[in-house]
């Protein structure tokens, strides 16, 4: 049997909202350590890797490792029925072909239960090496979302140039061109508003902005986003999921023909 309970069910709903545009169905790997998921988009350009550690749940029980094929589209629809302060329990009974989502209101007066049929999915797994990136930009996730949205107006691609002083996002297309430059914060009251850059080597990489905008669907999970970059290496765009894990998106850069 598998059972995991989250007092703040909305966190789980935000995780699903963060994933479902990039991947519509995925296999969840459940073990004693927690829940993990790895999936690529259909064009094999981007990949998402999710980790939710067991100690982040109020209660967590996983008697044996399980691979659960789940339609994220359907799960998202079910989770929309959850109240914003509801507690969420995810359960898979032994020998069952369904996942049960139970939602309980804070005053314990309302209790809803939904079952979703599990799917048999072919899952492909990529070995992502630990990488020492040349540059890690940390910035407010709302700012990153806004920049990606704005850049998409100008063109299909965004070039991210990072130096020790700042990071520049630029796009050009038929209508024109533009760029936004952010300097490293020197003095901020709140850490979540800061832009910080760890840099070993300056980088300039170009990415499809459409994918960056899909990654930004996970921005409500975290005040800050980490963008890890090296030349000729996929971008890693990371949002923390509270203290319990993270969503990491990987995106292959565009290359010169």
């Amino acid at each position: 049997m598998f059972e995991a309970r989250l007092a703040q069910g909305s966190i789980f709903a935000k995780v699903i909202e963060g994933l479902r545009e990039l991947v519509t169905e995925a296999t969840w790997e459940c073990s004693g350590n927690g829940i993990t998921l790895q999936a690529m988009d259909s064009s094999h350009v981007a990949l998402v890797s999710l980790v939710l550690r067991s100690d982040g749940f109020e209660t967590y029980r996983c008697d044996r490792n399980m691979s659960l094929g789940i339609s994220l589209t359907s799960m998202s629809k079910v989770l929309k029925m959850m109240g914003k302060d509801d507690t969420l329990t995810i359960r898979v009974n032994d020998d069952s072909d369904a996942i049960v989502l139970s939602m309980e209101s804070q005053n314990q007066e309302e209790f809803a239960e939904y079952e979703l049929r599990l799917m048999d999915l072919d899952s492909e797994h990529l070995g992502i090496p630990d990488t020492d990136y040349s540059c890690v930009v940390k910035m407010p996730s709302t700012k990153f979302s806004r920049i990606c949205r704005d850049m998409a107006i100008l063109g299909d691609s965004v070039t991210i140039c990072s130096t020790k002083d700042g990071v520049k996002f630029g796009a050009k297309g038929d209508v024109g061109q533009g760029s936004i430059r952010l300097n490293q914060s020197t003095n901020v009251d709140k850490e979540e508003d800061a832009v910080s850059i760890e840099l070993r080597e300056a980088v300039a990489l170009t990415f499809a902005v459409r994918y960056l905008n899909m990654f930004c669907k996970a921005a409500p999970l975290s005040n800050q986003v980490n963008l890890s970059m090296s030349e000729d290496t996929p971008l890693m765009c990371e949002f923390k999921v509270g203290d319990m894990g993270h969503i990491r998106f990987y995106l292959a850069p565009k290359i010169e023909d």
């Binding site: 990949l47 990529l126 170009t206 990987y250 292959a252 565009k254």
Partner: peptide, 14 residues
Amino acid sequence: RLRQSQLWMYYKRI
């Protein structure tokens, strides 16, 4: 011209 590369080129499939 720029073209979109795929992740296969960077990460080997297990």
